[in-house]
Write a protein that binds this DNA or RNA. Structure first.
Length: 603
RNA sequence: CGGGGCGUGGCGCAGUUUGGUAGCGCGGGUGCUUUGGGAGCACUAGGUCGCAGGUUCGAAUCCUGUCGCCCCGACCA
C-alpha cells in the first residue's frame, strides 16, 4: 500500500476528549473515529490490525478443533425470557439495547450469545455421539454501558470473539476449559501482549469456575491482586485472603460511651483511641430484586475492612435464590419516601430492630442480616448504639442477641496474607480484561431445555463452557502496553504493516526508483509493506511512521545513489546503514523469526 | 443516575466577566523558495459561535429551555 492512497490523516494535537495514551494515539494516528458515545468507526489501518488479531484467534481456535459460525445480532426476547435474563439485561441498569419491530415483537441487540447458540445446539445435537462440540464466532456485540470510556476499552459497540462448548459431562467440560486456557495464553502471547490469568467472578453470565486474562496496564479498569510468589492471582471482585489480625480490645464490661459527632470510623478512632479493627461497622443497603422486591440489608463488617459488593450479591443469590438488579446504600431521603423515621447514621449497631422497617411502603419489613467473618470472629468490640452520639464498648455478639449469618463479603486488598501460604502477601496491579473463560455448567441448557440423549438412552442437559475475547479492546490494550512519546509500537504480529519504506525526498528520481524497487521486492517476499511516496518533507514522514507504529522502517535517502538504505527498528530506534539487498534479506529473516517465535514459543 | 466541566471553520484553542455581528495556531488550496525529524514567505477558501425560544436598537457574550460530548462518583455516612 502507498501512503498517498491510504487516506491517512494524522493529528498533531491531542484530541480533547481522549484521556489515556492508547486512545489518544489511535485517534492521532487516524486508526479510529468516534461516531457517537462509545461507538467508533475502524479506519483502514485499524481494520488491518483487527484482521491480524482475528487470524491469530482463528488459527488457535481451529487448532483446538473449534468450529466458526456467525450468529444473529438481533435476538428475540423469548429466548432471553426462557433463561430469565431478559429482565436483568433490560431493566434498571441493564445493558441490552432492545427494541420492538413493526409487529410489536420484542428484540434485543446481542450483548452475548448463550441463548441463541444453546437453542440451536439443543435442536441439532441430539446424541452423545455428536459431542463434544466447540463453536465460536467473531462478531460485533452491543452493550449499552453505564459509562462508556477510553475509546475502544469500554465501548457500546465492539468486536468480540465468543465461543461456546457443549459436553456430555463435567469432566469433559473441564478438559476443554483447560484447552481454551492454553489456547488463550497462546493467542495473547502471539499478539505480543503480557497478560496475567486471574480467578474471576462470573458475573451476569453465571456458572462455576471462571478465569480472566488481564493485560497489565496503569490505566486498567480492574484491580487485580497477585501473591508475591505468583501462585495466586485474582480479580479483586473475587479475591480471597487472610485479613490482618485485629488488635484485641482490653477486657471490660459492656458499657455505653458518649461519642458526639463521631460518625466515622476515623473520627471515632482518633478521639476515643480505638483501632479501626476493634470496631464493627454497619452498612444499611437495599437490594432491588429482579422479581420487583426491595430487600433491606444490614451488613456488619470490621471497621478496617471494606465491603465487596460482588461477593455480597453472590452470597445473597446463593442464600435466597433471588437475583439482584442493583444494590444501593440507604439514605435519609429514601427513608422519608418509605414513610420511615430517620435513623442516626454513623451510630447504627448490628442489632438495629426489624420493627424499624414497619410501615415501609415498598420495602420488605425485615432486614436480611449478614456479618463478614472479620466482624463475626471479634470477641469484644465497639459498635453503634442505634442512638445519636452513642456507641457501645466491650460489646459481644451474645450481648447483641446473637450473631447474624457469617459470610465472606470482604474486599481482599494489597498487604493481606494469602490463603495458600500466609507468608505470601498480596500485591495490587491494574489490568485490562481482554479475555474471560467460564465453566457454565448446565444453567443455560436446563433453562432452554437443550438436551441430548446419553448412552443409557436418557435425555439430559448439556454441560457448557463459554469463552470470550474482546478483539477491539485487545487491539487498544496492545497500544496501551506498547507505545512511547512518539507514538505506537505495534507488536509485529498485529501491526497494520510490517515495514514502511520511506522515500526521503520524492523529487530525487534515484531515491524514488530505489524505493519502488525495494517496495516491490518486499511484497514479493510476502512482507506486508507500506511505501511512503508522499511529496512531504522527510521529517513529516518520519513523524508519521513513528506515530502509526510500523515496527520496521527502511529509509531511502542520501545514500540511494550507492544503493544503500537505512534500516530502523521502531521499538528501540536502532538504525543500520546497509546495502538495500541486505536490508531486504535481513528484514525477511527478522520478520519470519519473530512470527515463528510467537507461534512456537512454549508457554 | 448524582456531581463537575465543555460545545466557536477539519483539529487544538482565545474571545463570554464588561453585549456592538468573530480571531489565533495546526490542517486544506495555489505559487515561489526549501528538502533527513511535523519548513519559510505570499495569496486563498472555509464558521448563521450545538439547537430553540426570549431580553435588547444590537447577542458567541445576558435569560430560559433543550440536545450533544468529556471527566469523577455511584460501599464504609
Amino acid at each position: 500500500m502507498r501512503v498517498s492512497r491510504l487516506m491517512l490523516v494524522t493529528l498533531r494535537d491531542i484530541p480533547a476528549d481522549a484521556e489515556i495514551a492508547s486512545h489518544q494515539l489511535l485517534l492521532r494516528g487516524g486508526f479510529v473515529r468516534r461516531v457517537t458515545t462509545g461507538i467508533y468507526a475502524y479506519m483502514p489501518l485499524m481494520w488491518k490490525v483487527l484482521q491480524k488479531i482475528t487470524s491469530i484467534i482463528q488459527e488457535e481456535m481451529d487448532a483446538k478443533g473449534c468450529l466458526q459460525t456467525l450468529l444473529p445480532q438481533l435476538q428475540p426476547s423469548e429466548l432471553w425470557k426462557e433463561t430469565g435474563r431478559w429482565q436483568g439485561y433490560t431493566a434498571g441498569e441493564g445493558i441490552m439495547f432492545h427494541l420492538k419491530d413493526r409487529q410489536e415483537r420484542e428484540l434485543g441487540l446481542g450483548p452475548t450469545h448463550e441463548e441463541v447458540i444453546t437453542n440451536i445446539a439443543g435442536e441439532i445435537l441430539r446424541s452423545y455421539k455428536q459431542l463434544p462440540v466447540n463453536l465460536y464466532q467473531i462478531q460485533t456485540k452491543f452493550r449499552d454501558e453505564i459509562r462508556p470510556r477510553f475509546g475502544l476499552m469500554r465501548s457500546r459497540e465492539f468486536i468480540m470473539k465468543d465461543g461456546y462448548s457443549f459436553h456430555t459431562n463435567e469432566a469433559n467440560l473441564k478438559s476443554t476449559y483447560l484447552d481454551m486456557d492454553n489456547a488463550y495464553k497462546r493467542i495473547f502471547m502471539r499478539c505480543g501482549l503480557q497478560t496475567v490469568a486471574v480467578d474471576a467472578d462470573s458475573g451476569a453470565i453465571g456458572g462455576a469456575a471462571s478465569q480472566e486474562f488481564m493485560v497489565t496496564a496503569e490505566s486498567g479498569e480492574d484491580m487485580i491482586l497477585i501473591s508475591t510468589d505468583k501462585k495466586y492471582s485474582a480479580n479483586q471482585e473475587k479475591a480471597i485472603s487472610e485479613p490482618i489480625k485485629a488488635k484485641p480490645l482490653a477486657k471490660g464490661e459492656p458499657s455505653l460511651i458518649e461519642t458526639p459527632k463521631q460518625t466515622s470510623i476515623d473520627s471515632l478512632c482518633s478521639i476515643q483511641g480505638f483501632d479501626s479493627s476493634q470496631i464493627v461497622k454497619v452498612l444499611l443497603l437495599v437490594a432491588h430484586l429482579e422479581n420487583g422486591e426491595n430487600q433491606p440489608l444490614l451488613i456488619s463488617i470490621r471497621g478496617d475492612q471494606e465491603l465487596n459488593e460482588i461477593k455480597l450479591i453472590n452470597v445473597f443469590t446463593q442464600k435466597t435464590g433471588k437475583n439482584i438488579i442493583a444494590i444501593n446504600s440507604i439514605t435519609n431521603d429514601q427513608l422519608s419516601s418509605q414513610g420511615l423515621t430517620q435513623i442516626p447514621f454513623g451510630y447504627i449497631g448490628p442489632d438495629l430492630n426489624d420493627s424499624f422497617l414497619n410501615g415501609a411502603k415498598t420495602w420488605n419489613n425485615k432486614f436480611l442480616r449478614f456479618a463478614d467473618l472479620t466482624a463475626a470472629t471479634l470477641e469484644s468490640f465497639v459498635c453503634g448504639a442505634n442512638k445519636e452520639g452513642k456507641h457501645l464498648n466491650f460489646m459481644t455478639w451474645k450481648h447483641l442477641g446473637g450473631l447474624p449469618e457469617k459470610v465472606d463479603i470482604r474486599k481482599a486488598k494489597a498487604g493481606d496474607s494469602c490463603i495458600h501460604d500466609t507468608n505470601q502477601k498480596l500485591e495490587e496491579r491494574r489490568g485490562i480484561e481482554v479475555g474471560h473463560i467460564f465453566q457454565l455448567g448446565r444453567k443455560y441448557s436446563k433453562a432452554l431445555n437443550a438436551t441430548f440423549t446419553n448412552q443409557s438412552g436418557i435425555e439430559e442437559p448439556f454441560w457448557m463452557g463459554c469463552y470470550g475475547i474482546g478483539v477491539s479492546r485487545l487491539a487498544q490494550a496492545a497500544v496501551e502496553q506498547n507505545h512511547d512519546e512518539s507514538g505506537i509500537i505495534w507488536p509485529i504480529t498485529i501491526a497494520p504493516f510490517e515495514v514502511i519504506v520511506v522515500v526521503a525526498n520524492n523529487k530525487e528520481s534515484i531515491q524514488v526508483e530505489l524505493g519502488e524497487k525495494i517496495y516491490s521486492e518486499l511484497i514479493a517476499n510476502g512482507i506486508d509493506t507500506l511505501l511512503d511516496d508522499r511529496a512531504e518533507r522527510a521529517g513529516v514522514k518520519f513523524k508519521d511512521a513513528d506515530l502509526i507504529g510500523i515496527p520496521w522502517r527502511i529509509v531511502v535517502g542520501r545514500d540511494a545513489d550507492s544503493g544503500k538504505v537505512e534500516l530502523v527498528q521502531r521499538s528501540d530506534r536502532t538504525a543500520e546503514l546497509m546495502n538495500h539487498a541486505s536490508a531486504i534479506q535481513k528484514l525477511s529473516k527478522e520478520i519470519q523469526q519473530a512470527k515463528d517465535l510467537s507461534i512456537s514459543q512454549p508457554l
